[in-house]
Amino acid sequence: MAQWEKILVAVDEGETTLRALRYTARMAAAMGDVSICLLHVYPEPPPDFYVNGGQLADYQAAKEKRAEMIFAQGERILFEAGIRPARVQRLVHLAAGRSISQVVLDVQKEGDFGTVAVGKRGVSKAEEFLFGSISNALARHSNRFTTWVVG
């Protein structure tokens, strides 16, 4: 079993991320000595990106700048709940050749995170089939760790 007090929170720009962060903040504050990693995963650029003269370094720089803002917002919620800054870590990944949910699962495994928190958007079956659902993918593949799906 992974270390349950190591919490990985998958974050993006959506409202559901804020709900997941607030939930995690309250749980973590009550639990005491936990560490939290905020993880932002962004997809590969679209197929026409390079044809149109795009540079991967520029794309990554823009995405990582955006991630900084997401992290800052997330940390604010955690710190207000009393989580010490030293217990919060940031990670940003490009999902190169992998889906976003697969990257989250890989980071969970590599970091031995016992708890993964994610917001739930609430999508239709058709949307889930075509666009996927990260929360459903995590819930389905939870094995030897706990997933908090915050709706």
Partner: peptide, 15 residues
Amino acid sequence: YDFYLPERPFALDLF
């Protein structure tokens, strides 16, 4: 043809 579905890249082929 190609399409951009980063989380389910092969969904349209399956469909």
